[in-house]
Amino acid sequence: MAVDIAVVDYGMGNLHSVAKALEHVAKGASVAVTGDAQTILEAGRVVFPGQGAAPDCMREIDARGLREVIVRSAREKPFLGICMGLQVLFDHSDEGDTPCLGVFQGQVKRFSQDKMVDAQGSRLKVPHMGWNNVLQLRPHPLWAGIDNGARFYFVHSYFVVPEQPALAVGYTDYPSQFVCACARDNVFAVQFHPEKSASAGLRLLANFVTWNGIPA
């Protein structure tokens, strides 16, 4: 029987938290942490998480034969990318000069160490780790009930630069603006970790598990 939510497991990072958070907000739904192509293709919706480095992520995706499955899922059903699951949707990452999935057009760049100074002149650390404000650029069903500017938990050293500005649905300052949430059709993908972002994050996940995949 098809599962309600497939969490794509390609060996990159702790998926336990994502699965637990989804089970917490989607009472009674079946959540499978899986690397099985058939299970992912048959699932009602797909969550694509990931931690670690871009070259490792892409290597593991290909080693498990999941490239086509992920790209197809991103065309067909409600799809949520998290952290590396946002970055590798783009064409290319500067991390290890890595060609990625090309679902979205654009690049993944590193925070430049020498420009990391805030308005008070304090040095900002890389990775960008902790709770930062997410500004919503336009309404979306996944933002429902979440304050514009709510804090989410981030941990990353690279960020996405979409070719088309319309892809961006959220941004964060560190110290200049970067895009932290992208959406198109049935796909929503975020740089932060909703599964670790307390009530704001749980609300976003709850919005996802009931989303029909239509942007507005």
Partner: peptide, 8 residues
């Protein structure tokens, strides 16, 4: 606004 200092 900006990255929050954390209390752990």
């Amino acid at each position: 606004m900006g990255l929050a200092k954390r209390i752990i």
